[in-house]
């Protein structure tokens, strides 16, 4: 049984990684074929370095991811604290249901509804081209917010509210009480929320596709590349993305294990 379960796990992992492995191998192909291996070459990687459109898109992606993650983390943490303080069950339920909409709804519907909003208001104030950096940033903040709120909320519910009340009773100003008492106990939730927001934003294609206008992010450039015939340059770019994700995840895991060990000892 034990061996069978190991084999099963191995097969699923193989299924998950086989296409990625194929992609990595063919990104080093010396010819432009993605079916026949002809020789080893790094020409596709060198080609990427000179592709200014792609480097620009990379810059756009990072800017949008960093800004949207920061803004949604601040706004979302404040929202979680505020929603938690709401006593009326009914208003709380309505707010939480609205919060879940972007998570539950199909990305294509979220993307289209935001695009219509931007075009609609753009027309009202007389803009011809309303889509761009601002709109893609707003869209990313909007779909990041629920994830931040839902990762901060449980931590907040676990914190003993008497602690904050005690601080207030002892004459601590509310803002200081928040930073000294509440914030330390919800910090893991905030960090998780920030990381989720950042990665979701980096990865998003569908919503950006409808809201970015000419401010193209990396997934949009990848989409345009894959529209043409299949060439190893897309594989080279994808391999680089895979390696960065891999390194980041391993690093994050190592750090987490370390901090847990520290807590344990």
């Amino acid at each position: 049984m034990k061996i069978l379960s190991r084999i099963y796990i191995a097969l699923i992992v193989l299924f998950l990684y086989a296409p990625i492995a194929v992609m990595v191998v063919f990104s080093f192909n010396s010819s432009s074929s993605v079916w026949v291996l002809e020789g080893f070459s790094t020409r596709w990687y060198e080609g990427l370095g000179n592709d200014t459109a792609m480097l620009n898109a990379l810059k756009h992606t990072v800017i949008v991811a960093v800004l949207s993650a920061i803004i949604s983390t601040v706004l979302g943490t404040a929202a979680a604290v505020g929603i938690n303080a709401i006593r009326r069950k009914f208003s709380k339920k309505i707010i939480m249901s609205v919060t879940q909409i972007p998570m539950m709804n199909a990305d294509i519907v979220t993307g289209i509804s935001l695009m219509l909003l931007f075009i609609f208001f753009g027309k009202l104030i007389g803009l011809n081209e309303s889509l761009g950096f601002g709109t893609v940033l707003i869209a990313h903040i909007t779909f990041n917010l629920p994830y931040v709120i839902l990762s901060v909320m449980p931590r907040l519910q676990q914190t003993d509210s008497h602690l904050a009340e005690a601080a207030l009773d002892l004459g601590c100003p509310p803002l200081k009480a928040f930073f000294k008492v509440i914030l330390p106990s919800i910090s893991t939730g905030i960090i998780t929320g920030f990381i989720m927001a950042f990665t979701l934003s980096l990865d998003d294609f569908v919503i950006s596709y409808f809201t970015c206008g000419h401010y193209q992010t990396l997934p949009i450039v990848i989409f345009n590349m894959t529209k043409k015939s299949v060439k190893p340059d897309t594989y080279a770019l994808s391999t680089l993305i895979f390696i960065s994700v891999f390194v980041l995840m391993v690093l994050y895991n190592v750090l987490q294990t370390k901090s847990e060990k520290k807590h344990a000892s």
């Binding site: 998950l16 990625i20 194929v22 993605v34 079916w35 990665t199 990865d203 294609f205 990848i222 299949v230």
Partner: peptide, 19 residues
């Protein structure tokens, strides 16, 4: 290991099946 492909763009993951 299961999570890493999830953080990769689904465009890329779909595309690699073509080969």
């Amino acid at each position: 290991i299961v999570m890493i492909p999830m953080w990769m763009n689904f465009l890329i993951r779909t595309y690699s099946w073509i080969t």
